[in-house]
């Protein structure tokens, strides 16, 4: 390929329907290695639908090329996880009655099943990224604060040593200080080479951390471009960054 960076994920003309209702129409996007790509947009634009379809929880139409391989229509979540795609869901989906340490270990389940036995090493890396989880390792996941839950959800995803991390609204329901911490971590993850597709309502924070951005409105891409130039685009400023625009 003539491109300077290899493409991790390429989506062309993707559509997703719930029954007869089409939620996403003809969407195309691309994520390169070591890059943060963000999809911003209002509530109900289809952001969560996009990530659910990418990870295989929802059926989709269109072309999906991941790590240079075309994904068949029948691909399953498990196959994608095996290939290093991991979703940090909006609802976190933690194992509430298990300890933080067990939640993290389960994040490495697929690697364990594939014969890798480096879980203890990986868990140390995760504790480096989220020292708070280290303090809480024996605590039940259900008793954590909102910010800690998000850290655990991300830490659990990192246990799979993902090549592409899909992040669904990591700032949702968190206090501003915690949001700042989470986004610092997201920037740190890029520096260690994890590609990320970040879906956010908090456009300001997302555009600050991302390299490239798409604006999703009512199921299709309305705008796209490098985050810097989108952040200064009057349409984006008016709808998403203006005084009232901090969703």
């Amino acid at each position: 390929m003539a491109e300077e960076r290899s493409v991790v994920l390429e989506v062309r003309d993707l559509s997703v329907s719930y029954g007869k209702v089409e939620a996403l129409h003809g969407l195309s996007l691309r994520v390169h290695r070591g890059e943060i790509v963000t999809v911003i947009g209002p509530n109900g634009a289809g952001k969560t639908t996009l990530l659910s379809a990418l990870i295989g929880l929802l059926p989709l139409r269109g072309d999906l090329v991941y790590l240079g391989e075309r994904q068949s229509a029948g691909r399953t979540v498990e196959q994608l996880v095996r290939q290093g795609m991991t979703l940090v869901p909006e609802k976190r989906e933690l194992f509430a009655d298990m300890s933080v340490a067990d939640n993290l270990l389960l994040g490495a389940f697929d690697r364990y099943r594939a014969g890798h036995r480096d879980q203890l090493e990986t868990i140390d890396h995760v504790f480096d990224v989220f020292p708070r989880l280290m303090e809480r390792r024996e605590q039940m996941a259900g008793t954590l604060s909102g910010g800690e839950r998000q850290m655990l959800a991300m830490g659990r995803a990192l246990m799979a040593k993902p090549r592409l991390l899909l992040l669904d609204e990591p700032s949702l329901g968190l206090a501003p200080l915690v949001i700042r911490e989470i986004f610092r971590t997201i920037a740190h993850l890029r520096s260690i080479g994890v590609a990320m597709l970040l879906v956010e309502q908090n456009a300001r924070a997302a555009l600050q951390v991302a390299d490239y951005a798409y604006v999703l409105e009512t199921g299709s891409i309305a705008l796209e471009g490098p985050s810097g130039s989108l952040a200064s685009d009057p349409r984006v400023i008016e709808s998403y960054l203006g005084l009232g625009g901090r969703h």
């Binding site: 979540v77 498990e78 989906e93 194992f95 659990r156």
Partner: peptide, 23 residues
């Protein structure tokens, strides 16, 4: 054991478990 924990995880949260590759 991790397989035992995986079963408990599935019982607790099916979607969460699937996302970890526990089908």
């Amino acid at each position: 054991t991790l397989y035992g924990k995986a079963l408990r995880a599935t019982a607790m949260n099916r979607t969460g478990a699937r996302l970890m590759g526990i089908s």
